[in-house]
């Protein structure tokens, strides 16, 4: 067990070190969702969005939940990229030739992605707060938001890693990633409530796990516990299923790739 932690700590530290060497990329990753979605999009649609439809005091306050879950989505789906490069340049093989527990490579990545995403979610909530969005459920609500984000993130990161281990080249990986990410956002309640969507889009969006996550995060920010709790319990149930499915697929892909 002591050895297992030694491996996981060392491998997680590697990701942290890499990030600290890529300062520009770190800044960009951190700032992009806030700047692009929350600040620009949120303010741009302030007057165009109908408050009767969004049922929020401002579009930014409506959008915050969407941006939080979007960040989880993007970080999760990109979570396997570094392993893909490790696989392509042989570094993964080097790691696998050492007497480590096979899962520590994966686990270290989960820990890293989850931590970074959580920090980013906190920053987004902080920026939203500057625009007058205060989660009505307080700190416990924020903790619940982080927990939902983590649960969703684990499944997404597993999908990303499964893809990283299965694709033939990183070109394929990024094509699939690009194809997945935007439709996932548009076909969810991130930007518009389900009820206000064209029928077919609303229908599809119901099956998007992102919608479930947003529907739990949004009342935590806007409305309070009474309205949020049923959604929170629901999303936890859905995410347990989602994660189990993704982890099963990820484990299979990993075993196929590593043997």
């Amino acid at each position: 067990m002591k050895e297992y932690w030694q491996e996981i700590r060392a491998l997680t530290m590697r990701w942290v070190r890499r990030l600290s060497r890529e300062k520009f990329s770190m800044l960009f990753t951190l700032v992009q969702p806030m700047l692009f979605w929350l600040i620009f999009f949120g303010n741009l649609f302030q007057r165009a969005a109908d408050m009767q439809v969004t049922q929020a005091s401002s579009y930014i306050s409506f959008l915050t939940a969407g941006v939080v879950v979007m960040t989880v989505l993007n970080n999760g789906l990109a979570g396997g990229v570094d392993l893909l490069f490790d696989k392509e340049n042989g570094f993964l093989e080097r790691l696998m030739s050492t007497p480590i527990h096979r899962t520590s490579v994966i686990l270290s990545r989960f820990i890293f992605v989850t931590t970074i995403t959580s920090l980013q979610v906190l920053v987004i909530l902080g920026v939203a707060w500057l625009f007058g969005v205060q989660p009505v459920t307080g700190l416990l609500g924020v903790a619940t938001i982080l927990f939902i984000g983590m649960m969703f993130g684990v499944g997404l990161t597993a999908i990303s890693m499964a893809m990283a281990f299965s694709v033939k080249s990183h070109g394929d990986f990024f094509s699939v990633l690009g194809f997945l990410s935007l439709p996932m956002i548009f076909l969810s309640s991130a930007l518009v409530p389900l009820a206000a969507m064209p029928g077919w889009m609303g229908f599809l969006a119901q099956f998007n796990p992102m919608t479930w996550a947003i529907d739990a995060v949004r009342p935590l920010i806007l409305h309070g516990w009474a309205e949020a709790l049923p959604h929170v319990f629901m999303v936890i149930g859905v995410m347990v299923l989602f994660d189990a499915l993704c982890l099963y697929g990820g484990a299979r892909a990993f075993r196929r790739a590593i043997g």
Binding site: R9, A10, L11, M13, R14, E22, G90
Partner: peptide, 22 residues
């Protein structure tokens, strides 16, 4: 060649592996 993490220093490579070999 190239099974190297370009962002890590030489010493950090060895430190990482030292942990992986316990």
């Amino acid at each position: 060649e190239r099974a190297i993490d370009r962002f890590l220093t030489g010493r950090e490579h060895l430190e990482l592996l030292a942990d992986l070999y316990h």
